[in-house]
Amino acid sequence: MKRTLLAAAAAVLALTGVADAQNYPWKPTKPITVVVPWGAGGSTDQVVRLLAKEIEGAIGQTVVIVNQPGASGSIGTKSVVEAPKDGYMFASGAAKDLGTYPVTGLLNTKLDDWHLFLGVINASVMGVNAATPYKTLDDLVKAMKEKPNGITVATAGINSSGGAALGAFAQAAGVQPRQVTYDGGNPAVIATAGGETQATTQLAVEQAEMLRAKRLRALGVFATKPLELEGVGTIPTITSSIPAYKATDNYFGIFVPKGTPAEVITTLEMIWKDKVGKSEALKKYATQRGAIVAALYGEEAKKAVMPAIQEFAWGMWERKEAKVDPATVGIPKP
């Protein structure tokens, strides 16, 4: 009797899953690949795996995550650009990075070439190795001014969220830190926790565990509001010490190239509306890791990400780090 009941329950669940999948216009016939252009364990990797579960549950098809790091995210993204636009390969990452590839000269693609499906807002944190003498942001800024190019800061590259935060911070504070780059946010954070570098500006979601373990010390968050991080407490804003720093929201998600069949885009929009915005797993992740759920798509997503793209692109241009004038690739000055 027990086996019969279990079999009946399984059959109902299976039929329910099929029925849910049949509500969507796209019915994929093989696994879908999402390329994460950074190493495993980093911010993009963490968020995309949660989003992939929501897609899998909705359409009843496997979503495979492939980590393909290198060249500040451009190598993995390029593989999606060059792949067939058939709906079976998506890109991912920070929308800010995607929108500024033409400015950095890393990849010939722009924001208008993509459909955005965003999941969370992430904020970078100025974290220092717990053994360093820097107790406040003012202490660190003072040391950077006394030792130009002498304080090492780990990032995932100039085009990464940590690299962007560091560049804007250095410009606003009038300091000259030495950036040390790694193939992903997770390696950059581990390097700082291990004493290989003195500080990191990678995202809170990447630093959270090391902050809770007290191997890193948070001095400030690159955001307009203080960050409440479970097990750590309140992290003050960078702007409270450096008013010249202009904070913007950094959105992460999945990106689908234009030219992909309309039924794929419509299906993903339905999933984002029906599933992602209500995802308990995503909400739990945000609470524990210091992120904000932001399940946006379409024009709303594009509008939301533009301020960060503008600030980063024009900041690089002013610091002479950009290879292309942002105005020439359709990025208006903020």
Rank of each mutant, 00 (worst) to 15 (best):
N122K: 05
K142D: 15
W26A: 14
G315E: 00
L227P: 03
A204P: 08
T62V: 14
V153Y: 01
G162I: 01
P28G: 08
G163Q: 00
R215Y: 04
G57C: 14
G162S: 05
V48N: 01
V329K: 08
P236T: 06
D20V: 15
I32T: 04
T328A: 12
G253C: 02
V35L: 06
M270D: 12
A19G: 08
G17M: 05
F312W: 09
V329S: 05
D274P: 02
Y101W: 13
T197G: 11
S124W: 00
I331H: 03
Q310S: 07
K142I: 09
G174P: 05
Y182S: 07
F255N: 02
T29A: 14
A156E: 04
I121L: 11
K275H: 10
V81P: 07
L211F: 07
A301S: 13
G99P: 02
N186T: 14
G167L: 06
S124A: 10
L118C: 11
K135E: 12
E300F: 08
L111K: 00
I242S: 04
V264K: 01
S72Q: 12
Y101I: 03
Q171R: 11
V66P: 09
T33D: 10
G233Y: 05
V324S: 11
P187W: 01
G220A: 10
L211V: 09
I292L: 12
P243M: 14
K27F: 15
A95Q: 02
P37E: 01
T62L: 10
K284P: 06
R319C: 10
L50Y: 04
L107F: 13
W272F: 06
L50G: 07
W114G: 06
G87L: 02
A11M: 11
G39R: 01
Q171V: 15
Y285H: 12
N23P: 04
L282H: 03
K258L: 12
V305G: 03
V293Q: 09
M306S: 10
W26G: 13
T239C: 09
I55R: 00
F117M: 06
V63C: 01
A7I: 12
G330K: 12
L51Y: 03
F222S: 02
P25W: 06
P31N: 09
G39E: 02
T234W: 11
T234M: 09
A156D: 05
R215M: 10
A83E: 06
G70S: 07
Q22A: 14
E318P: 11
Q68K: 13
G76N: 03
K53N: 08
P243D: 15
G127H: 02
S124Q: 08
N159C: 15
G174N: 07
T33A: 07
K145I: 08
T16I: 11
G57K: 07
A123K: 03
F252P: 02
D112Q: 13
F252I: 12
L118I: 10
A123I: 06
A204G: 09
